[in-house]
Amino acid sequence: MSFKTVFTPAIPAIIAANAPKIVAQDVNVYYGEKSAIKELSITIPDKAVSAFIGPSGCGKSTFLRSINRMNDTIPSCRVTGKIAFDGMDIYDRAVDVVELRARIGMVFQKPNPFPKSIFENVAYGVRIHGLAKDKVDLERIVTESLQRASLWDEVKDRLAHAGTGLSGGQQQRLCIARAIAVNPEVILMDEPCSALDPIATARIEELISDLKQNFCIVIVTHSMQQAARVSDLTAFFHLGTLVEVGDTDAVFTNPQEKRTQDYITGRFG
């Protein structure tokens, strides 16, 4: 494996301990002529939380979106290099994005529940992928997903109400429930707490820690504290390149790069 732009004295402990889930190699992403990600290589471990940090516009979202090929929906966007999921190149021509995205869920910065009932929001992916055997099964999946997203107690009496009628934090947990209902292997979260108050944020962080038992989680965040609290691996992006990646403790206590240090101590960004 080559780590061209990254200075890595040793393989991070979390990568050594857990199986690699996603391995990116020499990834470049372009919007038209403009390059947003340059020669990026990273290994993301399974059953752990990896955090992407970095100043605004450095390409965190862009890279995150290329992991589940959401970038396909942007006509000008082009990806080169290789991103492997369990060893399978996701940009291979034989890959069906529909299948891919069923395995790699995503939660967005602003909660975006569908204009449907709470139940239907969670049932959406289950229905389109045909994952439930029957109605009872569907109800079970919806209930379980809401429970795992720790939203069940708050909404169990109003499953038929509109998902858009919930509070911001509840909506975000609904979106998480919606994502885990299809039983993905990876969950990508792009600043999932930036629209939420501290209490709602704390609940989501708790949830993330719970979920990492079963999922590979990648989270983009602007909060250094959040990255330190929830993640095992931290990757620092700057101007489209990956500057440093390592165990979260190591990156925050003993950054190897000056730029990383400047960023986490708040000197720029």
Binding site: M70, T73, V98, R101, A102, N112, F114, K116, I128, A179
Partner: peptide, 26 residues
């Protein structure tokens, strides 16, 4: 809002599923 479509695509919905089940109801 595009976010509505993104939410659906991220679930692995096809474009027509997104249109019929999310965009048009919205």
């Amino acid at each position: 809002p595009q976010a509505m479509r993104d939410g659906s695509y991220a679930m692995g919905a096809t474009q027509s599923e997104t249109i019929r089940k999310v965009v048009l109801p919205a």
